[in-house]
Design a protein around this nucleic acid. Structure first.
Lengths: 149, 149
DNA sequence: TCCGCAGTTTACGTCAACGTTAACTTTGTG
DNA sequence: CACAAAGTTAACGTTGACGTAAACTGCGGA
């Protein structure tokens, strides 16, 4: 079902093919399909997963090991062909709670980042105002006494 | 005036002393004072600069070279003992415009990050809702047919 | 059927941002 | 002033996240 080759995924998402193979090595992103000859074929779900990985990396600053743990926690819950389907009720509850804990942690982290970014933006805007004042002073000087010294 | 030693700065900000010396090597953060024996003494301004460096690194993801360029741009404007004071009017205008350009770029970048984070938070909240539904189903099953199979 | 491009594995290379160790010096407190 | 704790320079080591090169294979169009 419209599974796409590695080069196209790489270009679309803005990473190298090497990066995709590397994620494969780490078990982060194993393509869901393969051609008869053994070439990787990525589904849309795979691409979404890749973008998730990149967000966790670039926005939240996780390294690839941490990202692996996060994804594996969620995978267990999604449980396509995983543990969920045949798990006992207590086990299901455990998986669900783990995924919930990860989710909570991520939401807190995003919140913290947003707060810090908001603070930073405030400072930047203060500086921008200052710059405008300075520019005004400069214009006055240029108008006022162009060649005084 | 209450300039502090490298170890204390390191502990307060949460970096290693090695990191501070490294930033010194790169010209990113040269301590404003030194003891008579040659030991680094950091002022409050230095500490603020360090925190700025860390924000640019951790929040915006710049590498240390880019951070150096940003800081140097702003330094010229601050011009403690720099170019500003003795610069010609056109030169001053140029410096001011460069600093303004950097400031604008940073504000745009912060805005972009905020947008991406907001999107991510939305997805995380969706998932959290899903988890609560799942937990509800699970509770019903546990209540309903505890030992059916 | 042949060609060329895209993909594959294997393996070594790279680079930023520090960590670590060694040998030595300063600092400041009893 | 002695001495432990903290700092200094110089140099080499480490690590994650890929980049790059070589040698080989599969696949779609003329």
């Amino acid at each position: 079902m419209t599974a796409v080759r590695i080069g196209e995924v790489a270009e679309r998402v803005g990473v190298s093919a090497r990066t995709l193979r590397y994620y494969g090595e780490l078990g982060l992103l194993v393509p869901s399909e393969h051609s008869s000859g053994g070439a990787r074929r990525y589904t849309e779900g795979d691409v979404a997963r890749l973008q998730r990985i990149r967000e966790l990396q670039e926005l939240l600053g996780f390294d690839l090991l941490e990202i692996g743990e996060i994804l594996r926690g969620e995978d267990r819950l999604a449980g396509i062909r995983g543990e969920w389907s045949e798990a006992s009720l207590p086990r299901r509850r455990q998986i669900l709670e783990e995924a919930g804990a990860i989710n909570l942690r991520l939401r807190e982290l995003v919140g913290a980042k947003q707060a810090r970014l908001a603070g930073m933006l405030g400072e930047l805007e203060d500086r921008a105002r200052l710059y405008r004042v300075r520019a005004g002073e400069l214009a006055a000087e240029e108008q006022d006494g162009p060649q005084l010294s």
